[in-house]
């Protein structure tokens, strides 16, 4: 339900990183999204399209990579996938979350030849 504020941060961060790297249009973006993270990918893609409109991120190809949950058992230390309520082979539920909470901007693709939108001319 907070996908719009997440999408806005992705656009802001992409523009900031693009500026630090010589400017240009942001034409691609890869986001790592953990399976436990409370963000819905389709809603996020839609929100991203809306908030990027009129910026140099507009039309950017957004790749969302789901990161599977990895848990470490608190009793025996074994690592496993699945969710928190599934038991470890040793019979213990839950565990320490090693992966699956990601909401991480991994990479962006910049095209420094493409024209910027009217509002963003340097």
């Amino acid at each position: 339900m907070h996908e719009t504020s997440v999408a806005q941060r992705m656009v802001d961060t992409a523009i900031e990183v693009a500026d630090q790297n010589g400017g240009g249009r942001v034409v691609g973006m890869r986001l790592l999204l953990g399976e436990m993270t409370c963000v819905e990918p389709d809603t996020l893609s839609f929100a991203f399209g809306v908030v990027s409109r009129g910026t140099r991120v507009e039309g950017c190809a957004l790749e969302i990579v789901r990161v599977p949950t990895r848990l470490r058992c608190r009793a025996c230390g074994a690592e496993r996938g699945g969710d928190l309520l599934e038991l470890c082979a040793c019979g213990t539920p839950g565990g320490e979350v090693l992966a699956g909470r990601e909401l991480r901007l991994d990479t962006i693709d910049i095209d420094d030849q493409a024209a910027l939108p009217a509002g963003e001319q340097p």
């Binding site: 790297n21 691609g28 986001l31 909401l103 991480r104 901007l105 990479t107 420094d112």
Partner: peptide
């Protein structure tokens, strides 16, 4: 030509 830039930043880093 586009170039890939590594960002590796938490989206909610500001929070």
């Amino acid at each position: 030509m586009s170039k890939e830039i590594e960002v590796a930043r938490d989206v909610l880093q500001d929070n």
